[in-house]
Design a protein around this nucleic acid. Structure first.
Lengths: 206, 206
DNA sequence: AAAAAGATTAACCAAATGGTTAATTCTTGT
DNA sequence: ACAAGAATTAACCATTTGGTTAATCTTTTT
């Protein structure tokens, strides 16, 4: 992706590990496969990262810290709430369209070793309280319906992420044998989710 | 669960395999562990089911055919649409509360070997077209907002299933260190999802 | 009761896999 | 040029694991 660097081995390993781990998961990935993908000897993996677990953690932590914070900030801008939510959905779905394997990978791994996940990310901020406060202020102002802001957040994430994480199943359920339509369906959800949410929570201007 | 049977070995195996497979997944489960859980010798597993794959398929197919059809039928009853959707959500969440590991397990496995999943369940009906027709009729009648019925279905499933599948993450995001509140949150979603959906799609009676 | 068939087990096997080691090649500071 | 340190590799190792086998125990059939 980036220039300047020549052929930094550590980066080659990280890139290869990211590819393989996301495709196969921690348990499904083979060290040999990662070495092959990076074009190096397997022993080098252990030379740079002590163990498979250490290598995996490097990938996983990097991936998660990269995903979360970027998109949530936009919910704290000073745009009107409808626009903020609309933009959030668009950006989030765009990110998922570019990383379609991420949801299944993350769900698999947080459930495989939830202790590690919690230990690693309990400190690492990702504090949604500011967002919850913002939503509650909008409720006080009568701009959106009063409800638990956690439900708004859960529903937003669910509707955005689930169709990617459950793709093989939803594809079959919604379109039967006609698979190809599913990608278009995902693309269109940028607007359909927006409509669905705003219709539910936005109150008419009095 | 059932009486009458004495100590049918095949059932003991199936029950043990179900427990272990759901907890650890196909890749994470060990044949020895299943044998231990069933209180039998490992070779017996291969005596009754030829291979790990065969045993897994028996569990997986049984699990999925059991889950789906029951709950969808109620969407085709002749109750008013609000009530049908409300009941669907309640029943579905109740089922998930009783099988909290199911979503993560199913998502993991359909993504691990989506070909097998598609091959096995493409015939096996689970045809939602009747439900889509029903929803479209309600739209024609002006009872609910016009939209792609597939989005309704996707959103319903997403909002119900995702909080179970992503529990370790959502728990942290929504409640920080105060974990224990999450189960109550899940319970309450029976009513909050209902509100959220109905507010979005039900049109006021003219 | 004897034989045949079925169920169960302990011991074993081959392949896969994460990890190590000792030797070799490459880079760099002097 | 050369020694020291870093990078890289081929070969190896120990463990895990799905699966097999041959023998033993149990049940059914005749």
């Amino acid at each position: 992706m980036n220039e300047i660097k020549k052929d930094n081995t550590e980066d080659k390993i990280l890139k290869a590990a990211k590819t393989i781990f996301i495709r196969k998961g921690m348990e499904g990935a083979r060290m040999q496969e990662i070495a092959d993908e990076a074009g190096i000897n397997k022993a080098l993996l252990h030379y740079y990262f002590r163990s498979k677990q250490k290598l995996f953690e490097a990938i996983f932590v990097n991936l998660l810290t990269q995903i979360f914070p970027n998109i949530t900030t936009l919910l704290l801008s000073d745009k009107p709430i409808e626009e903020k939510i609309g933009l959030f959905i668009e950006k989030y779905i765009d990110m998922l369209l570019q990383n379609p394997y991420l949801p299944a990978f993350v769900l698999k791994e947080i459930n495989r070793d939830s202790d590690f996940f919690e230990k690693t990310f309990s400190n690492r901020k990702i504090d949604l309280n500011l967002i919850f406060n913002m939503l509650e202020k909008e409720m006080e102002a009568g701009n959106i319906r009063k409800m638990n802001p956690r439900d708004i957040m859960a529903n937003l994430l669910a509707m955005c992420i689930f169709p990617f994480a459950a793709k093989p199943m939803l594809k079959l359920l919604l379109f039967g044998e006609n698979h190809q339509q599913y990608d278009q369906f995902l693309e269109e959800r940028k607007s359909t989710i927006k409509e669905f949410v705003l219709n539910s929570i936005v109150l008419p201007k009095s």
